[in-house]
Amino acid sequence: MPLSDTTGAPGPEAAGGPLIRFEKVVKRYGDNVVLRELDFEVAAGERVTLIGPSGSGKTTILRLLMTLETVNDGVIWVNGDSLSHMERNGKLVPANEAHLRRVRKKIGMVFQQFNLFPNMSVRKNITEGPVHTLGVSKEEANQRAEDLLELVGLKAKIDAHPTQLSGGQQQRVAIARALAMRPEILLLDEVTSALDPELVAGVLDVLRDVAQTTDITMLCVTHEMGFARDVSHRVLMFDAGRIAEEGTPEQIFGDPREERTRTFLKAVLETG
């Protein structure tokens, strides 16, 4: 049921083939199967939210896309390139570092725990990647850092140290850092889960802003259902390594077909 109607997803630029395609992807940790022959596609510019109980494989999908993990079986295609394999003499062989670095260029990620570099100022955190990986000039990177900090409302903190910032501020810097790399795909891994409740809104506002003003493809794992409803084109409900149900936010949140989705949403809305 989950695979067939993905092409009918209401992505704005769904034409011209998918940007991301999972093909029978299997991921195991020891005996624990996290993803079971998962198939799904994301179109360019589409914003997809992944929901489901913990351990259902949502975060693993993001980590596989960021090449932090490797698949056990199956292929992940990004823009026609396989993430884990490359072509050599007409054959698919495991990807080397150069290939990984090339495919990663399109992808950025914001982590649950922010993962800012404590040994660098906010400015350095944001400019380090563009200067050293993309080869952008220092001036340009600095300018971009300032613009992005303006966007996330932290321009005054440009020379601060990550430890001097609140969790919410750190996470907004982390978003700026990811955007500074000009990714085509932005992965958001439970970006508000580690924050105190009063700091969540600020971070979500920034992300709403990014969603409205750019056409970056977004994959978002979150428990913030209001946010998911606002920004995403499509919602995927995961359970035990498979897509249990998918549809528009209106349909999933308003009229879930599956019993599992209903119980999950009920549990989340009650505690959240």
Partner: peptide, 23 residues
């Protein structure tokens, strides 16, 4: 050094040498 720091450098597409030296 927390593994998350390494993951952040991968997300920023840093080379091994840069990761070691800078982070």
């Amino acid at each position: 050094v927390p593994k998350a720091q390494t993951e952040a450098t991968i997300a920023l597409n840093m080379t091994w040498a840069r990761r070691m030296r800078l982070v």
